[in-house]
């Protein structure tokens, strides 16, 4: 008799819980996994390329802010019909002006060095251009408005970078 009641109780509770916790349902798991896979399919960005992009971003952004390099997350997400590149960076500490200047100078020097090695300036600027075009094509040049701050940082210095 007791068993029947506990069974009944569990069923009642379960009945109400079912409607509450929908996040873990098989359907939601499927939807989320599909979205991620389709993003990759549509943009032709392999996990390898994503990792490379992540590393390059870390390198670039750490000139301006001190951040948790391991925790930088880079994901493609769908927002309606648009594909958005979502970037989440846990900032540990803002760098002061001196530090930023120093980092920028260092990178300029490095760049000059590499340019000297490459012998001609034109060639490098051309390769930068074409690489940027490719990147734009791949990510379908859609960036999310939520990431304006990081986007702004991304766009300007990326020319210095390579």
């Amino acid at each position: 008799m007791n068993e029947i009641f506990t069974n009944l109780y569990n069923k009642v509770i379960g009945f109400f819980r079912q409607t509450e916790k929908q996040e873990t349902s098989a359907k939601d798991v499927a939807c989320n996994r599909l979205r991620v896979v389709l993003m990759q399919d549509r943009t032709n960005l392999t996990p390898e390329l994503m990792e490379r992009m992540r590393k390059e971003l870390v390198e670039l952004l750490s000139k301006y802010v001190e951040m948790d390099k391991e925790a930088l997350e880079l994901n493609l997400e769908q927002d309606g019909d648009q594909v958005a590149l979502m970037l989440s960076i846990p900032v540990i500490r803002a760098k002061d002006e001196e530090e930023i200047q120093k980092a920028l100078q260092e990178s300029e020097e490095e760049k000059e060095k590499s340019e000297e090695e490459d012998s001609s300036e034109k060639e490098t600027s051309e390769t930068v251009d074409s690489e940027e075009n490719n990147a734009n094509k791949d990510s379908e040049k859609e960036e999310s408005p939520q990431e304006k701050e990081t986007d702004a940082k991304e766009e300007n210095p990326s020319e210095d970078k390579k």
């Binding site: 349902s25 359907k27 499927a30």
Partner: peptide, 9 residues
């Protein structure tokens, strides 16, 4: 029962 994707999904 949320075990299959719906038409809307």
């Amino acid at each position: 029962t949320n075990d299959m994707m719906s038409v809307d999904d």
